[in-house]
Lab assay of single mutants.
Amino acid sequence: KYSDMIVAAIQAEKNRAGSSRQSIQKYIKSHYKVGENADSQIKLSIKRLVTTGVLKQTKGVGASGSFRLA
């Protein structure tokens, strides 16, 4: 599940300011076997996790910027 992968990526990075979408994508692609549409799936999952309150956006708008666990 992409949401689990995103949470794992943010936990692994341990950046106080949060993790960027690009760094999350890079982590997921190197640690998991994902399909061609992974980028758009990650983007959608990040937006969903922010609206449900699992992630907090520290910089930027939408799916860009930095995110950390709430």
Rank of each mutant, 00 (worst) to 15 (best):
Y2M: 08
Y2F: 09
Y2T: 03
S3G: 09
D4R: 09
D4I: 09
D4W: 14
V7Y: 04
V7D: 00
A8V: 04
A8K: 06
A9I: 02
I10K: 00
Q11T: 10
Q11K: 13
A12D: 05
A12E: 04
E13T: 08
E13H: 08
K14I: 05
K14L: 06
K14A: 14
N15R: 07
R16K: 13
R16V: 12
R16Q: 10
A17S: 11
G18K: 02
S20F: 03
S20E: 04
S20L: 05
S20Y: 02
Q22T: 10
S23Q: 11
S23L: 03
I24S: 00
I24R: 01
Q25R: 06
Q25I: 15
K26I: 09
Y27R: 00
Y27P: 01
I28W: 15
I28D: 00
I28N: 02
K29H: 10
K29L: 09
K29D: 04
H31W: 03
H31Y: 05
Y32F: 13
Y32I: 03
Y32L: 02
Y32D: 00
K33I: 10
V34L: 08
V34P: 03
V34M: 05
G35Y: 04
E36D: 10
N37Q: 07
N37D: 14
A38E: 06
A38C: 13
D39Y: 10
S40P: 05
S40F: 12
S40Y: 14
S40I: 13
S40A: 14
I42S: 00
I42L: 04
K43Q: 13
K43L: 15
K43D: 15
L44M: 11
L44F: 07
L44S: 08
L44N: 08
S45G: 12
I46N: 00
I46H: 01
L49W: 01
L49K: 01
V50N: 01
V50L: 10
T51I: 13
T51C: 13
T51A: 14
T52M: 14
T52R: 11
T52H: 08
G53I: 04
V54E: 03
V54Q: 04
L55I: 10
L55A: 01
L55N: 00
K56A: 08
K56Y: 11
K56N: 07
Q57L: 11
Q57N: 06
T58M: 11
G60F: 05
G60H: 07
V61S: 12
G62N: 07
G62E: 07
A63I: 09
S64N: 12
G65P: 15
G65A: 15
G65K: 13
S66Y: 13
S66E: 07
R68G: 05
L69V: 06
L69R: 02
A70S: 08
